[in-house]
Design a binder for these strands. Sequence first.
DNA 1: CGATAATTTGACCGCTTGGTAAAACATTAC
DNA 2: GTAATGTTTTACCAAGCGGTCAAATTATCG
Lengths: 214, 214
Amino acid sequence: MAIPRAAKTQRRTRIQEEKEERILEAALDVFSQNGFRGATIDQIADAAGMSKPNLLYYFRTKEAIHRHLIDRVLFTWLEPLRAFDAEGNPESEIRSYIRRKLEMARDFPRESRLFANEVLQGAPHIEDELKGPLKELVDEKAEVIRAWARSGKIAKCDPYHLIFSIWSTTQHYADFDVQVRAVLGQDYAGEGRFEDAARFLEQLFIDGLRARNA
Amino acid sequence: MAIPRAAKTQRRTRIQEEKEERILEAALDVFSQNGFRGATIDQIADAAGMSKPNLLYYFRTKEAIHRHLIDRVLFTWLEPLRAFDAEGNPESEIRSYIRRKLEMARDFPRESRLFANEVLQGAPHIEDELKGPLKELVDEKAEVIRAWARSGKIAKCDPYHLIFSIWSTTQHYADFDVQVRAVLGQDYAGEGRFEDAARFLEQLFIDGLRARNA
DNA sequence: CGATAATTTGACCGCTTGGTAAAACATTAC
DNA sequence: GTAATGTTTTACCAAGCGGTCAAATTATCG
């Protein structure tokens, strides 16, 4: 007779841990492809290879699964920006930031789409995180960029819009993948487009931001 | 006793025309905010100020409304790219393309989000349009850009990824509006961010693509 | 006016959805 | 072992969904 619902016991069994992971993995698939409202618990349960009530034993509601995923993604998604180093060389910092974001778009497209879906629909579940932690981190890094510009290491530019443009150009390859593939055609087999994109974006941003002694 | 369903009569009454317009307007609101699956006919009917069966008298299915909207958006969305002129000055062509795309993001964010929602979820309704007309148009304009690069008017670069990067950076201000606002803070009242974005993007792309005689 | 066609409404249907209840089953602790 | 706890299943529900139907209402036209 279980009053439970997983969280009751402080120490979670391995079976709990394993099942929860399987659920989240399946949910990532489904949510990222259909959005929150488009996803159904049955779909997720199917993909996780268990019955719906069984799934609901681990997560009480559909929203609980979603929140769990969103929290996780939000954290890892900002890693590359956190790594942005004020002491480093501006050009190589920007270059490696672009690289890392592009790698994430390539390796974790579902996470990117999950996030995009959420923001696109007004970010109903994460407004606070955006206005709080996210804004603070961006403010901090914007100051770093501004300092680089002031000291003439890169061209003067609006640091916020610089960050936005790196976000958008890199995530585009995950979020708009179907469109990218459609336009490039299938002769573009494999992941070559990511290498090409990296080359292009590095050129664009590095040359576009190179300090001009005018 | 009407066998009707609007399309039966070749000549549509003004009342038909007006109601259909009201429905599409309402549907744009709802679809762009909730995606296809997230939107309900009741919501759209409510927003259009009519009953559900009444709405279904004008559009037989939810998909019919959606297809109508998507077709319309797809067409107008490509206008700026079509205007891209091979004979013009490369720098000013690119500059005004960015401007126009940014203006569309500002003035028609719902249209942008409708499209983004669709592509994000795998473009189930418009795969053919992407692989057909869209690809052809992009191929054509990519050739123009390549010619500019060959003749040394702009730096050598991958024209496809250049187009992608203009699309993504500009549409970002419509699709990720909540995030942009959250990060910039509400001190950013009004639409000033679009002017700032325009300045930044023009600088980035123009300087990033300026021909290098190296 | 009356007749005919166009529009609107309310009642309804079958299916899917998120979620529950309770009992069956499995596992662990002693 | 057995008792307690943890897990899974079967059956189910109430609400929401896309869509239909037939009757009621309104507009149009001679």
